[in-house]
Design a binder for these strands. Sequence first.
DNA 1: ATCCCGAGGG
DNA 2: CCCTCTGGAT
Length: 205
Amino acid sequence: MAQEIERRLATLYPDAHCELDFRSPFELLCATILSAQCTDKRVNMVTPDLFRRWPSAAALGVAAPEDVEAVIKSTGFFRAKAKSLIGMARALVASHHGEVPADMDALTALPGVGRKTANVLLGNAFLRNDGIVVDTHVARLTSRFGLTSETDAVRIEQALMPLFARDGWARLSHLLIWHGRRVCAARKPRCADCTLADICPSAVT
DNA sequence: ATCCCGAGGG
DNA sequence: CCCTCTGGAT
């Protein structure tokens, strides 16, 4: 079942990819922190300004919080995100010579960085295959399919990993996210247009 | 009104 | 387990 889902979505979205703009692991880390409860398009509208003013962890770590808040304001949660960005940058300088570590434990140890953000970094900036990105879209889609019954994102990921091929979890994540956004929407799921409707227990037509 | 590619804190 | 943080889109 799971592999059939992946096969069909891979056909439907042959060019699924990370929609955050970034030129380095540091930029993707910042952009991913900003992406919480916010669309990627809006994140991409503020990151050029953010990275022009503070192009490195060393620069961002000594930024004035109010200045960072002003730049990222439209992404929502701007106070908490500015605090996370600056704290994260300081931790990079203090513990990793200002570089972003390509390591799950080191990433999640950074303030403001959880498992979801770490998986995005590892899969998209470092081309590693540590886990599946579980966001609200993935949780909703897999729940509707009956693949997962958990609510905790980490447990959903653990339930999903054995169901899919071990390689290409980053690509799988994007397939699930794209379909979750475009078709298996939270509010108005477009089951009539869904390539998975015939094998989905929650499909409504 | 409800949701958006979350994480930290109580 | 709950709550909070926040603006924008639909």
